[in-house]
């Protein structure tokens, strides 16, 4: 929709990463690893693909984004603030008493948050409900559900995957942030998930795997998902947990740990160096 070039998207992604680091650092708790891994996916959706009007967050024809992996709330908040849903100053209130920026997103507290999430595995079914509502109302909005990979271990995800294909919900796209790590370590060691793409296919979806940090691949896949008819589409986005901050990358310790002030500085300096 908005014709942001790849370079602009990359700059926006760096900006979201800076927000994430600053927010979690200030809060003293939160989930940096899984927020950083999905930055490019969320950037592509909010700054290129989705039909949104920040001044009218309840616009009935808007596209819907569901952060099923609710612990990546800092990423969602950063995108919403950058998009103009609320003042950027609010970001630094993350997780503080009285803040609308709850540790996990709440749709009644913050404009732009579509669904309250945090308990894993629930987002896809909620997306199904929205997709069915769109069909009943003959509206052409689309629903994007971002799932974590560890989250795929929840049985409810597969109940919903079954229902989405049963009802032929081609207005729904699931994106799996496949960073291969969960709290206790590697997903394949904790509870193996592969083959993820084939699992979705076996449930009646169209599915493909991409590099989840590569904007051209992300945009192409989202475009492909829009063209799939009669079925829901799943994009398995291979990512790096903690992406963009070298000492966080591929380290499960950074799933749910806040950087200390000096670590915030190091991370921000690294992100600065990445400016072309």
């Amino acid at each position: 929709m908005v014709g942001n070039s790849i370079r602009e998207l990359e700059a926006k992604a760096r900006q979201l990463r800076r927000h994430i680091i600053q927010m979690i650092g200030k809060a003293g708790s939160g989930h940096p690893g899984g927020s950083l891994s999905a930055v490019e996916i969320v950037t592509a959706l909010y700054f290129r693909v989705m039909r949104l009007d920040p001044k009218n967050p309840h616009w009935p024809d808007r596209d819907r984004f569901i952060l099923s992996k609710g612990h990546a709330a800092p990423l969602l908040y950063a995108a919403l603030a950058e998009k103009g849903f609320f003042p950027k100053e609010w970001l630094l209130t993350l997780r503080q008493l009285g803040s609308p920026l709850q540790g996990h997103p709440h749709c009644r507290y913050l404009p732009g948050v579509e669904v309250s999430t945090g308990s894993l595995g629930q987002g896809l079914a909620v997306g199904n409900g929205m997709a069915l509502a769109a069909r009943l109302d003959k509206r052409d909005y689309r629903i994007y559900v971002l799932l974590g990979d560890g989250e795929l271990q929840e049985g409810m995800v597969w109940e919903a995957a079954m229902a989405a294909s049963h009802y032929g919900l081609d207005n729904l796209t699931a994106i799996v942030d496949r960073n291969f790590l969960q709290i206790d370590g590697s997903t394949e060691q904790v509870m193996s998930l592969e083959p993820v793409e084939d699992k979705f296919r076996a449930f009646g979806w169209e599915a493909r795997t991409i590099d989840g940090h590569d904007f051209p691949q992300i945009l192409e896949a989202l475009d492909w998902a829009r063209r799939v008819k009669g079925k829901p589409a799943a994009i398995v986005a291979h990512t790096i947990k903690g992406k963009g901050v070298s000492f966080m990358e591929n380290n499960p310790d950074w799933h749910g740990k806040a950087p200390k002030p000096e670590e915030v500085e190091r991370a921000l300096a690294e992100l600065q160096d990445q400016e072309g």
Binding site: P60, E114, V115, A125, V126, N128, G129
Partner: peptide
């Protein structure tokens, strides 16, 4: 909408429908 023998999906889908009015 028959959601099959899947009560979690039943409630989640109902939530999504409610979110759309």
């Amino acid at each position: 909408f028959n959601m099959g023998v899947a009560e979690q999906s039943l409630m989640g889908t109902a939530a999504g429908l409610a979110l759309c009015g």
